[in-house]
Computed example of a mutant assay.
Amino acid sequence: MMSGSEIPTTLLLLRHGETALTAEKRLSGSGGSDPALSEIGRRQAEAAAELLAARGAVHAVVSSPLRRCRETAAAAARRLSLQLRIDEGLLEADFGVWEGLTFAEVRERYPVEFAAWLESPAAVPGGTGESLDSVTRRVALSRDKLLARYQGQTVLVVSHVAPLRTLVRLALGAPPAALFRMELAAASVSEVAYDGNGNASLRLLNDTSHLR
């Protein structure tokens, strides 16, 4: 039987539900508009909340401050009878002048900058945006704070593609290029467990079974 110190700390990673920009596959970071969930997104949030309520044993709900995440997280917090906490470190990246564009449009209009961004995590997207290196630093800091505060508990983390992919990448010890090789659909659930030494184990990735 495990002692308290041996019980892993689990982060359930929930991507926000769909917005109008999500459906059109347009970049929607922290530097553009702050869209609300669409009707589909609200249904996805409720479906995810139902899944999490059925799972049980969630001790805290923490969200990015952006509206689409707060709305998704609020649905879960209501079902779980938990207070919603906001963490600025879980913000999506700022994509600068790329905000609102599709990847195809970025590739066409800013080919050199886009290639550099895919090649190097130090590259700044859209001229004034946030590098993936910067995203990694703040997400890792938020992760460490959560692991310290909720040792041995399960925390629902509601965030965006870049921060959630970063948490998965760091858990796997994978290189930065791995960020572009994983799918995290709207309202998908992933799960990472951390032992007392901080060693991570990816237990679930991009589960959308509750949306079918």
Rank of each mutant, 00 (worst) to 15 (best):
E108L: 12
P175T: 01
D87L: 02
A57K: 12
G173C: 08
R26H: 12
R203L: 15
T102G: 09
R70F: 07
E105H: 09
S38P: 07
Y194C: 05
A60T: 06
R143Q: 13
N199R: 14
S188A: 11
V58H: 07
A148W: 00
L14M: 11
S38N: 12
P121L: 05
R212C: 02
A75S: 11
G173R: 06
E50W: 11
L101K: 14
L37D: 01
A77T: 03
A76L: 10
D144Y: 04
V106E: 08
R15G: 07
R67I: 10
L91H: 06
L147W: 02
P125N: 06
V135G: 01
A185S: 14
W98I: 03
G56D: 06
R68W: 05
L205A: 08
F114D: 09
N206T: 09
A60Y: 11
G56Y: 08
P176V: 02
P121I: 04
G127E: 10
Y194T: 03
E6D: 15
R79V: 00
S5A: 15
T72D: 06
A73D: 01
A104N: 06
R79E: 08
A162S: 12
R143D: 04
R203N: 13
G198C: 08
S38R: 12
K25P: 00
D144Q: 13
E183R: 15
Y150D: 02
V168D: 00
Y194R: 03
I40W: 09
A47T: 00
L84I: 04
S38Y: 13
L12D: 03
L84T: 02
L37S: 04
A185Y: 07
S63E: 00
E18D: 15
A36Q: 13
A104S: 13
D144V: 05
L164I: 09
R109E: 08
